[in-house]
């Protein structure tokens, strides 16, 4: 610490024979720690103010206005929020979103855990890990299009196989009951490799002698999974659950490519509803109010999860 303080004396760096000239404006700018720091963070700070901090407050302000982008925004107070509270479409969108999260998260987490355990036990192969990770590297739009094609009622491979088996063709994306689970399946397909990789990394961090000790004590595979693996990867579990639930709440791309919120609003999730309000009918105030509500929901969900899963503590060491 004492060392880094040395160049703060602007007059003379060690060995310098010309102390007077060097204490110029530029010299201070280059050697004074705090001035340098401000120069270093200036561009990032500008970006943060312009595209994060200011918009966050502006979103809050817009949510208190009536604004269609053409006229001047009209301040109407919390009217949008009371409208939202009484809006059946909002509650339906919330229901659809929560359902989607409930379809998505348990299956994705279980598949991820299963794959991670198998990978940790049976294979170090980087090829295998790359293969199951491949879907995650493909953009949402392309993934959605590929599945839309595979499940096309008339020409899709999936439906041709179902026909061949004798089940018959199923219009996955245009059936009111099936559309949302189908979108969840598409998402699970894209994310299972990432989930598995994250759990795999967590499992690798568990010392092998813990398992050794458990085996000597006579613990079976199930005991060691539930008694060792699961508790010891809790930090990973918290990270995976929190980030994947936050991500699922904001599903948009797959819906924008496949169902556009339909059929009969069965896939109109909260973000799609925000998009419809803000960017199709240009009700900026109402869309902002909806997005603030989403923010509030996510904050509550995250806090509850952190509390339940005791994220701060690790059972290891």
């Amino acid at each position: 610490m004492s060392v880094s303080a040395q160049p703060r004396a602007p007059a003379s760096p060690p060995g310098s024979g010309m102390p007077v000239r060097r204490s110029s404006f530029f010299h201070v700018l280059r050697f004074r720690e705090s001035y340098c720091a401000w120069i270093f963070i200036a561009p990032a700070l500008l970006g943060f103010f312009t595209f994060y901090l200011m918009p966050a407050f502006r979103a809050l302000y817009i949510s208190l206005t009536d604004w269609n982008l053409l006229r001047v925004p009209k301040f109407i107070g919390p009217t949008n929020f009371s409208k939202l509270w009484n809006d059946p479409n909002f509650w339906n969108a919330m229901k659809v979103t929560v359902l989607y999260v409930l379809y998505n998260i348990p299956i994705q987490t279980v598949i991820g855990l299963l794959l991670a355990v198998l990978l940790a036990r049976l294979s170090r192969s980087i090829i295998l890990r790359s293969v199951i990770l491949a879907p995650y590297l493909i953009s949402n739009v392309i993934v959605a299009i590929i599945w839309f094609w595979m499940l096309d009622p008339l020409l899709g491979f999936g439906n041709a196989v179902l026909q061949w088996i004798g089940i018959g063709r199923i219009p996955f994306f245009s059936d009111q009951q099936l559309a949302l689970p189908t979108i969840a399946v598409v998402n699970i397909w894209r994310h299972m490799g990432l989930t598995a990789l994250l759990f795999y990394t967590g499992i690798q961090a568990i010392p092998k002698d813990v398992y050794e000790a458990a085996r000597i004590e006579g613990a079976g595979p199930w005991r060691s999974f539930f008694g060792i693996t699961l508790p010891l990867i809790r930090p990973t579990m918290v990270f995976v659950l929190v980030t994947s639930i936050i991500g699922s709440f904001q599903v948009f791309d797959t819906i924008a490519v496949t169902t556009l919120g339909g059929p009969n609003y069965a896939t109109r999730t909260i973000v799609w509803y925000i998009y419809e309000n803000g960017f199709e009918t240009f009700r900026m105030g109402y869309a902002s109010a909806l997005s603030c509500a989403l923010f509030l929901c996510l904050a509550i969900v995250t806090l509850v999860q952190m509390r339940i899963l005791r994220s701060g503590q690790s059972d290891l060491g």
């Binding site: 720690e33 705090s34 340098c36 720091a37 401000w38 270093f40 963070i41 700070l45 943060f48 595209f51 994060y52 901090l53 200011m54 918009p55 966050a56 502006r58 979103a59 817009i62 982008l69 936050i246 709440f249 904001q250 948009f252 973000v271 925000i274 998009y275 803000g278 960017f279 900026m284 869309a287 902002s288 997005s291 603030c292 989403l294 923010f295 996510l298 904050a299 995250t302």
Partner: peptide, 30 residues
């Protein structure tokens, strides 16, 4: 580097990750 406000600014950066991107998309679009 040590500078006045480092902790506050860093905390704000951290807090910004909590905001869903769609909240920021509306004002940023405007």
């Amino acid at each position: 580097l040590r500078f006045y406000g480092r902790r506050v600014i860093f905390f704000l950066f951290l807090a910004a990750t909590m905001i869903p991107s769609v909240v920021l998309f509306i004002p940023n679009f405007i």
